[in-house]
């Protein structure tokens, strides 16, 4: 039986998620942004697991497991893109990758 109430876990998850969001917003290195996104995913995972435990089912854990795996795939792709980015210019800055606006 966890010692703290579910509220504590939800609040902690919220804090982690928001800090990860700040990381995405204020860092301009693609690596840092990727890491921040991973941390946000982890915050969501924590929520899944906590609620799963509160309900006494396995769905939360299975979902977290899925997220971890998908995150691995996502990181693989994201890092591949980062490598491509660094190949184009040695000092990678996401602000300079603005071809997205056509």
């Amino acid at each position: 039986m966890p010692a703290f109430s579910l509220n504590a876990y939800v609040a902690l998850s919220a804090v982690l998620f928001a800090l990860g969001g700040i990381g995405v917003l204020v860092r301009r290195s693609p690596l840092a942004m990727l890491m921040s996104i991973e941390l946000m995913l982890n915050a969501a995972n924590l929520l899944f697991v906590a609620f799963g435990r509160a309900h006494g089912g396995y769905e939360g854990q299975i979902m977290a497991f899925l997220v971890i795996t998908v995150a691995a795939a996502e990181v693989a792709i994201g890092l591949a893109l980062t490598v491509l980015l660094f190949r184009r210019r040695p000092e990678a800055d996401v602000d300079q990758v603005n071809e997205l606006r056509l």
Binding site: V24, L25, M33, V94, D95, V97, N98, L100, R101, L102
Partner: peptide
Amino acid sequence: QNGLVRSYA
């Protein structure tokens, strides 16, 4: 629509 990822984020 400035193409800046962080702006979109």
